[in-house]
């Protein structure tokens, strides 16, 4: 449980990096081997593994090794917290602005009558 909270703490930090965002996006389409994930990036494998490590520590992804191949996949549960919050923020703004549409229409109407 404690582990989970600590992991949640750094999700946003993990997603602040473009390489890590790209990895998460790719994994959104399904699990992939590290070698495949690393291919689009012009960086040495050890550097790339650091990014994978951060994503794993954060709990955004998990990896398993079978033979010599390490495969990564998304931990959708943790990713959801960020997306859910952003969805709520979007919904708040959308709703309040619809209220404002109504208010502006009424105020404009009052204006026309005077």
């Amino acid at each position: 449980m404690d582990n989970n909270c600590a992991a949640l703490d750094s999700i946003f930090h993990a997603l602040a990096d473009p390489t890590r965002r790209a990895v998460v996006q790719r994994l959104g389409r399904g699990p992939a081997a590290v070698s495949e994930l690393a291919r689009p990036f012009a960086m040495a494998l050890p550097s790339f593994m650091k990014h994978v490590g951060i994503l794993e520590e954060t709990g955004l992804i998990r990896s398993t090794k079978v033979g010599r191949i390490r495969t990564c996949e998304l931990e959708r549960k943790n990713l959801k917290a960020v997306e859910l919050w952003l969805g709520q923020q979007r919904a708040i703004w959308q709703s309040r602005y619809e209220n404002l549409d109504g208010l502006l229409a009424r105020l404009n109407g009052e204006d026309d009558e005077t």
Partner: peptide, 10 residues
């Protein structure tokens, strides 16, 4: 900071 965003999310 990213930490602040995370606090807001929590």
């Amino acid at each position: 900071s990213p930490q602040d965003v995370q606090k807001a999310i929590d």
